[in-house]
Nucleic acid binder design. Structure first.
Length: 412
RNA sequence: CGGGAGAUGGCAGAGCGGUUGAAUGCACUGGUCUUGAAAACCAGCGAGGGUAACACCUCCGGGGGUUCGAAUCCCCCUCUCCCGGCCA
């Protein structure tokens, strides 16, 4: 949720940051108008209420003095119906405003480059050389070693599901443990959270109301499968007021993730790059506002370090405004090199959501006497399936076998 | 899934129609005392909106209703706890 008071006060500035993310300026003007209208209506109802409260307090006094109550009662009855009327208008306005406001994305930070889509993201860093093969490297789905069983995954569920077998299953588990240990060593506390969450949590992190089509919903219940651990982990502190001296709070959590991939028909239909169910180790940070952008850099460096430790060539990209996610103010993607596909593919996306999620989820901290909204950040550290694909393609041998990265050997 | 109890500030826990946004205790913050600490004593201490600051408005799980007035009465929902059934 954007800060409506900020929008009202500094309309030009805010709308500029928003148009970076391709937002219709007419919509913003409408929000501003509605907000102003709401304020007027609200104060008029409040005045009526103040009147009602004040006069109601006269009743016990009148009674004590044995004065006539009839006239006072008549006045208040009238006033009451005015309140009800005004309140109805107010509720309509509030609902209208909320409906629009919840659909407005977070503001892009100044440092975010302009651009319409992924082609205009800025590459900031390349780590490790792209390896040379003395044979034609294969796609992970063409590798002969028995790692992934695509057919049986589809048989027992449907397309975009797969099963892991043999060393694939083992490597998958090794990666999870390696990631979690790595994150913990960097000061992230591990937590285990629900995979099914309520509507309120989904709204808190920004998946709802706008992206309901992307989520698996439990039939007959207002519950959803999580598309990322970001949802339960960020909402861990929803409605809470944290102590300033315990910030930043750094959490890491391993979960399965479930996505409908509604908009990706025909994309990545082969292999396990884009599945309805995948596993991910996530990192989430709750910070004071003035340190969140520094922490964003730290987080992306940490993920890069992890990829380096696996000897996987990768690059860092700063997403341009047009490619930025709904809740994010700034995002750094990490893409790993896939020799079989001859291209870089995303394995991690680290974002600073600033106060966008904390305003929705009411996550605050005590700053002296005042309560302020924290900044929330999150990132994959790392996507398990895609990292496994990267290992398969980068560590493949001419005979089709796959070597195990040095740092993972003790986990296998 | 069946039977019972309940949901009040960071926690514990009063209040059950009228100066109650809420007693009391603990925790917390500041002060006095002390070489320092503890103890004791004094003071402060819920959230959101509004304002230059006050005033003022809203909030006692959520939603609706009765009333001039509701934390207190009525209805619906959700959640929690205890007992039983089922179960990793």
């Amino acid at each position: 949720m954007v800060d409506l008071r900020e929008l009202e006060k500094n309309f030009d500035e805010v709308s500029e940051k928003l148009t970076k993310k391709k937002i219709d300026i007419e919509l913003l003007k409408l929000v501003k108008e509605k907000f102003a209208e709401l304020k007027v209506q609200k104060s008029s109802v409040e005045e009526l209420r103040a009147e009602q409260n004040k006069n109601s307090k006269l009743f016990p006094i009148y009674k004590k003095e044995k004065k006539d109550i009839g006239e006072l009662k008549a006045i208040l009855s009238q006033n009451k119906s005015d309140i009800i009327l005004g309140n109805e208008k107010l509720k309509v306005l509030e609902l209208e405003l909320e409906t629009i406001a919840l659909g407005i994305p977070n503001l892009a930070d100044e440092s975010v480059p302009l651009g319409a889509g992924e082609d205009e993201n800025i590459e900031t860093k390349k780590v490790l050389e792209i390896p040379e093969f003395n044979f034609e490297p294969k796609n992970h789905w063409d590798l002969t070693e028995n790692f992934i069983d695509f057919e049986r995954g589809v048989k027992i569920s449907k397309s975009r599901f797969s099963a892991l077998v043999g060393n694939g299953a083992k490597l998958h588990r090794a990666l999870i443990n390696y990631f979690l240990d790595f994150n913990q060593a960097k000061g992230y506390q591990e937590i285990v959270v629900p995979y099914i969450v309520n509507r309120n949590s989904m709204q808190g992190t920004g998946q709802l109301p706008k992206f309901e089509d992307d989520l698996f919903k439990i039939e007959g219940e207002e519950l959803f499968l999580i598309p990322t651990a970001e949802v339960p982990v960020t909402n861990f502190f929803a409605d809470e007021i944290l102590n300033a001296d315990e910030l930043p709070i750094k959490l890491t959590s391993y979960t399965s993730c479930f996505r409908k991939e509604a908009g990706s028909a025909g994309k990545d239909t082969r292999g396990m790059i884009r599945q309805h169910q995948f596993d991910k180790v996530e990192i989430v940070v709750f910070s004071k506002p003035d340190e969140s952008f520094r922490i964003l850099e730290e987080m992306s460096e940490m993920v890069s370090e992890m990829l380096t430790s696996l000897k996987l060539p990768h690059r860092l990209l700063t997403l341009c405004g047009g490619d930025l996610g709904f809740s994010s103010a700034k995002t750094i993607d990490l893409e790993v090199w896939l020799p079989g596909q001859n291209q870089y593919r995303e394995v991690s996306s680290v974002s600073n959501m600033t106060d966008f999620q904390s305003r929705r989820a009411k996550i605050r901290y005590k700053d002296g006497k005042k309560n302020r909204l924290v900044h929330t950040l999150n990132g994959s550290s790392l996507a398990v399936g895609r990292t496994m694909v990267a290992i398969m393609e980068n560590y493949q041998k001419a005979d089709g076998s796959i070597e195990i990265p040095e740092v993972l050997k003790k986990y296998m």
